[in-house]
Simulated scan of single mutants.
Amino acid sequence: MGWLVALAFVIFLFLAFSAVVGYKMVRPSRLIENWTPKDLGFEYEDVTIETRDGLKLSGWWIDNGSDKTVIPLHGYTASRWYSLYMKPTIEFLLREGYNVLVFDFRAHGRSEGKYTTVGDREVIDVLSAIDWLKEKHPERAGKIGLIGFSMGAMVTIRALAEDDRVCCGVADSPPIYLDKTGARGLSYFAKLPEWLYTFVKPFTKLFSGAKELNMLEYADKVRKPLLLIAGEKDPLVKVEEIREFYERNRVINREVELWVTDAPHVRTLKLYPEEWKERVGEFLKKHL
């Protein structure tokens, strides 16, 4: 009987470890920095956006005098302050003449929310931000575009399919097969074996209450201008997965584009800033 007790104890420790990993995955550390759009040369307003399910999101509204507004969407564990891609994207959009509404997703930055759902309920955050914009500044919401990175790219794709008020979107490094990306993330960020994700995933769903997303389903739903950006050196999302989405979407969507670079995850802007700005700038000018 002693070996049964030992086996049960080992199983208990393994499950406890998996639970801790799952808990940490849905409660990422919050990235908060001190810079504001004022440091980029633009006046701004601190805003609070109440979501349709009752959370308060923290953000900035930068009125640039246009009737076109772009909402940049950060990725998992990031926030509006993320210097890798959010800060240069905000500055780029403002210098292009667009208004910018930017906020921290739930459980990120200064926003409320205990758990992230990595793309599930985050779409509520985006739709609620559009609600806020339409109510507070309807004259600035003639056309609304989205630029999302990683998790934000997933939400961009979902919002294009689910909200008629969004006219176009840029999705940089969007995870398509979430289980595969989650497993790769365990290896890439935590140096844990990918197979562990099978045991961690049930705990992430238990803690966060998130529903499973099938991003490929949205390839059959999006019929609006969409620019997909994929990187050949991305350790989290394979080019082939984004290409599969693209090939499936273009059957019904003549205005979907795919741009493949040799960059790692969400780093095309960092490695090729001028080309990124040119490609994204032309896309927005055409469709906004």
Rank of each mutant, 00 (worst) to 15 (best):
A8Y: 09
I11M: 15
F14V: 15
L15A: 04
V20H: 03
K24L: 10
K24C: 08
M25V: 14
M25Q: 12
R27N: 14
L31P: 01
E33T: 08
K38G: 09
Y44M: 05
E45V: 06
D46E: 15
T48F: 06
I49G: 02
D53A: 03
G54L: 10
L55T: 07
L55R: 08
K56N: 14
L57V: 10
G59H: 13
G59R: 13
W60A: 04
D63E: 13
S66K: 06
S66E: 02
P72I: 14
P72D: 12
Y76D: 09
R80H: 12
K87F: 00
I90S: 01
F92T: 01
L93S: 05
R95P: 01
E96V: 01
V100F: 13
V100H: 08
H108L: 13
H108A: 12
E112D: 13
D120F: 12
R121H: 04
V123T: 07
D131W: 10
D131S: 10
W132N: 07
K136V: 13
P138K: 01
E139I: 01
G142L: 06
G148F: 07
G148L: 05
F149C: 06
F149W: 15
S150P: 03
S150E: 05
M151C: 08
M151N: 09
M151V: 07
I157E: 06
L160I: 09
A161V: 11
D163G: 10
D164A: 15
R165P: 11
V166I: 15
C167S: 14
C168S: 12
D172A: 12
D172Q: 07
P175G: 06
Y177Q: 11
Y177G: 03
K180W: 11
G185Q: 11
L186E: 05
F189Y: 15
L192W: 13
L192Q: 09
P193D: 02
P193Q: 04
L196P: 00
F199W: 11
F199R: 04
F199C: 02
V200N: 05
V200E: 08
P202C: 11
P202D: 10
T204F: 07
F207I: 05
L213D: 01
R223A: 00
P225I: 03
L226W: 05
L226I: 09
L227A: 07
A230C: 09
E232P: 00
V237P: 03
V239T: 12
I242M: 03
I242N: 00
E247A: 00
R250W: 00
R250D: 00
R250I: 02
V251T: 02
E255N: 12
E255S: 05
V256P: 02
E257A: 10
L258T: 08
T261G: 10
T261S: 15
A263R: 08
A263V: 08
V266C: 11
R267E: 15
K270D: 01
L271K: 09
E275Q: 10
E278T: 13
